[in-house]
Nucleic acid binder design. Structure first.
Lengths: 351, 351
DNA sequence: TTAGTTTGAACAAACGTTTGTGCAATGCTT
DNA sequence: AAGCATTGCACAAACGTTTGTTCAAACTAA
């Protein structure tokens, strides 16, 4: 027999629990129960358990998780769909979700919708096929129809960043209205009267809330709120650039601009530079979404920050809660505080 | 009968192809073959195919992908493990990989190793259990032992960014040596003689290549290469900060510093600022890993750029090649060009 | 009409787990 | 020594697909 049993097999050489069972003269059942630590419940002797465990350790066997998923009807996987994983705002959220997920035994499969509604819908469908246990989505945000069925089926789902008023789904976002109020008041407090706003995607919750906060603050502070000073229709750098250009040419009296995203701010900065103007000497600027590197800018940016890490961990916790409690879960809507971080991009205008 | 068949069932109400078959009075086999577009091969009539397809469309059925994966022994999923998904360098790579993967019918599951070797190893193991078809890993990088078995088993695997000389695995990275040479020559060409280097994790391929490029260029250009001017042991912001502080205090004669990562540069900048010095007036700076926002810095940073998108797409293509060609695959080692992007963080020193 | 061919679909095994239940063998009690 | 409780493990079905093969019905040709 040449001691065949002593041949060393490296790595995961397609061993499965059936082969383990055969090699050890045990039943598949027993092996399975040892692996899943059910030895107590099913009275597997300590001796047998050790034999199995040693064998697995020596041969470095990784039991087939797919089969387990099929049998258990649970994949221990969640889907994460974001509009742009390369945007530090979303990648920071992704990081905290991944961390939280892993610490709770879940995997996350990543989908980048590229801010495209169609693609987003496709990703949702694909992830359903994959039988993810739940979804965390930073939706593109204009249209809730993709998610209606998911929500009405009570499928575990949490929106982050943007959400839908008309949909009774869980979400975690920031108190965007209050954030905008804070920023606008700060500008007014520093003497600014002609304040423009570079907005993001029209019709998204995030955007509406911020724009409303901005407009209503202007009015409550006794200034005129001029819709013409609100421009833009995307959270992107290019949109920020283009509209900053238009805005500053059209209304030279503008002394401050409120940017509704980090990318928009980058675009605005590019436009301002190109026009030969300076921040904050010529134009003051406040933006949403704080980034660590903002402090190193020519003029370190004053920002309204989102608590990305908290958004991520809360979102996962809510999702997990939904997954485990199933039908009995009641939707959670969470709005996190937005601290104003003062740096040097806002000039004080004397009266 | 109350026309029960007309009850509208919304969404994926746990329909599977068995129930479809039963509802339609067909066999599971037939339904499966329609779904997988094998109607030609198995001669399913167009009429039958249409009936099945219509039924699926109406009821919005998503066939169970898990069962398919089990049967097919292929998950159409790859694992992506990076040290820090919140680092724009890695998130950009992640984006291009996700894109490329989706366009080829693959999903990517995300793992953040948090620059921790232990965690990285665990992630690899977990992903093996999940039966990913392949792995793309930006390894922490000090120790190749985690991957030895994977490579010797010829498991589809591509390293990005960092890799291991001693391991015959595929990788996609940048020509780090040449990049460092370019940067160092640029500094010397601008009159700098005392050039320090803030390095990343010691013992990683990326770091060694860059440090060697730096040191050897100093010598080839007739300057003294001083090992004491090379400090640091991590690609992180905090490491950059700490070592910049030490370095600048210890050697006040330094006129330029070469940072081996974007995060290190951020840390160095913080230290320089704290010491009351200015870039480039007091200290010139070049860093690896270009970021779009570098142009807006107090002193727009001159950088040695990596082609993140190309790294990602190439890595996936190589991986796919390995997956489909199986045993017959021959390893690919790819080093992408690193363009030097000149901005304003390097001062010209007169002789 | 008969034999041969083509068409359209079904049977059943397999992928690798988990788990309710059954059943010897052993231990304990009196 | 007999009866009962406990211990330790195995049987077999189920999860939802895919696919080689079989087979009846319909068509074709002579």
């Amino acid at each position: 027999m040449f001691h065949l049993s002593r041949v060393v097999i490296l790595g995961n050489s397609s061993y499965n629990i059936q082969k383990i069972a055969k090699s050890l003269g045990l039943s598949v059942t027993t092996v399975s129960r040892v692996i899943s630590n059910q030895t107590e419940k099913y009275r597997i002797s300590a001796k047998t358990a050790k034999i199995v465990r040693d064998f697995i350790a020596i041969h470095q066997i990784e039991p087939n998780e797919i089969a387990r998923q099929l049998r258990m009807k649970s994949t221990k996987t969640i889907g994460l769909i974001v509009p742009d994983i390369a945007n530090p705002f979303f990648s920071e959220i992704a990081r905290s979700i991944e961390n939280e997920a892993r610490n709770n035994g879940y995997f996350v499969i990543l989908g980048d919708s590229n801010d495209d509604q169609k693609l987003e819908e496709e990703l949702v469908s694909l992830m359903q096929k994959r039988r993810v246990d739940g979804l965390i989505i930073a939706p593109v945000g204009k249209d809730s129809k993709t998610f209606e069925q998911l929500v009405s089926r009570n499928f575990p789902l949490v929106f982050v960043d943007r959400y839908f008023e008309e949909l009774d789904g869980s979400y975690v976002s920031s108190s965007n209205y209050e954030g905008a109020v804070k920023a606008t008041k700060f500008l007014i407090g520093n003497g600014h009267r002609k304040i423009a706003c570079l907005q993001g995607l029209h019709g998204t919750s995030t955007n509406s809330n911020r724009v409303n906060g901005y407009l209503e603050t202007l009015e409550s502070e006794g200034l005129i709120s001029d819709r013409n000073l609100v421009k833009g229709d995307s959270y992107s750098e290019s949109d920020g650039y283009l509209n900053a250009l238009i805005l500053l040419k059209e209304f030279p009296q503008i002394t401050a601009v409120l940017c509704l995203s980090n990318l928009i701010a980058l675009g605005a900065l590019r436009a301002i530079k190109e026009l030969g103007k300076k921040v904050p000497e010529d134009i003051s600027l406040i933006t949403f979404d704080d980034q660590p590197y903002f402090q190193f800018f020519q003029s370190p940016l004053t920002t309204v920050a989102q608590q990305m890490t908290s958004i991520g961990t809360s979102a996962f916790q809510i999702l997990l809660d939904h997954i485990v409690s199933g039908e009995g879960f009641s939707k959670q809507k969470l709005l996190l505080d937005m601290p104003l971080i003062e740096r040097e991009s806002v000039r004080i205008i004397g009266e």
